[in-house]
Computed example of a mutant assay.
Amino acid sequence: MTISRGEDEPAKRSVSGCRIIVSEDDDAVRERFVHLIAEWDGGEVVAECATLLETMAAIRTHEIDLLITDLNLPDGNGIEAIGALRALQPAAEAMVISVLADDRTVLDSIEAGASGYLLKDADPVDLVDAINDLMAGRSPISSRIARVLVKRLAERAERSATGEDTPKMTPREMDILWGIAKGFTSDEMASSLGISRQTVPVHIRNIYRKLQVSNRSEAVFEATRQGIIRL
């Protein structure tokens, strides 16, 4: 299944010479993906990665058009790689191929910047067709993932209709949000609030998720626009 991304999305791009990073810890699956791409004249694999660390290094090293990533990596979550790709190479695309289909994981992946989401345990993945669809401006997704997104849109519409669409922040998240707005570092916020340095990024990620943003500037803008904080 594919979904059009609409007129406000980037223009369709040629898949000729598509530069791809494959991030997958299962050797057999990774080798199969690499082999399929190698037999296709539309793209090339510039890096094969089995860990999040390798994937992050490849994103920093190679200019690419597409990241294909699993989520359950031995040393972290592929969502972190998607977020890094969005920050470092915003023109590049990301596609998840995973066994995970729970609502939170799907939504976090999409919000991080994934434009496609396929399930390993569904029908056999036609990788080349999926890449062609994605690079042509569509979003290849499995039917179970489509249901998650439809459910999310329905919930959002219901909240908007009842005036309950503004995200609810916890008191601690509000403290962190004000710290972000004032330009404090994570260390400064931890010190002033008397909390662990390691907990600050957790609160920041929750704030980003609730506001559906990916950086501090966007968080402040959205929080101000929605009336959560007033500067």
Rank of each mutant, 00 (worst) to 15 (best):
R60N: 08
D70Y: 02
A11F: 13
G17A: 11
L134G: 06
R159Y: 02
L71P: 06
Q198H: 14
R152D: 11
I59T: 10
A181F: 13
M189P: 00
V15F: 08
V15N: 13
P167C: 02
E111W: 05
D165Q: 12
M135D: 01
P124F: 06
I228K: 04
T2S: 08
K151M: 15
V106M: 06
R144F: 05
L107D: 01
R205C: 00
A91M: 13
P124Y: 10
G137F: 06
T2G: 07
V96H: 04
T69F: 07
S217A: 13
M95S: 06
N72S: 15
R197I: 08
N215A: 02
V125C: 06
I176K: 01
P124V: 12
A47M: 10
I207H: 00
A92Y: 03
I97L: 12
V220L: 11
R225P: 11
L66F: 06
A146T: 09
P124A: 09
Q89Y: 03
A50K: 12
D65C: 02
H203I: 02
N132I: 15
T55M: 14
M1L: 07
M135N: 04
I68L: 11
D41F: 12
T170V: 01
T170A: 02
I229C: 07
P90A: 03
G43A: 13
D65F: 00
D8W: 09
G43K: 13
P124E: 13
A94Q: 04
L52E: 10
V213A: 13
R216T: 02
R230A: 12
P140C: 08
D126M: 12
R30V: 08
L88H: 00
L211N: 14
R30L: 15
A190H: 05
T61F: 04
E111M: 05
P74F: 06
A114Y: 00
A136Y: 02
M95K: 02
S196Q: 11
E188H: 09
E48G: 13
S98I: 09
V29F: 09
A157E: 04
A58S: 09
G183F: 01
E155V: 07
K151Q: 11
G116F: 03
G43E: 08
K151L: 14
T224E: 11
E48Y: 04
L66T: 10
V46Y: 05
P167Q: 02
L134M: 14
F33V: 12
A114G: 01
S109A: 15
P10T: 07
A58H: 07
Y117R: 03
R156Y: 03
E63Q: 07
A190T: 03
R172Y: 01
T170S: 06
K12Y: 08
A28S: 15
D26N: 07
D27M: 14
F184H: 05
A146C: 12
V96Y: 06
R216E: 07
L88S: 04
S16E: 12
Q212P: 00
E80A: 11
A161L: 13
D41I: 10
S109W: 03
L53E: 15
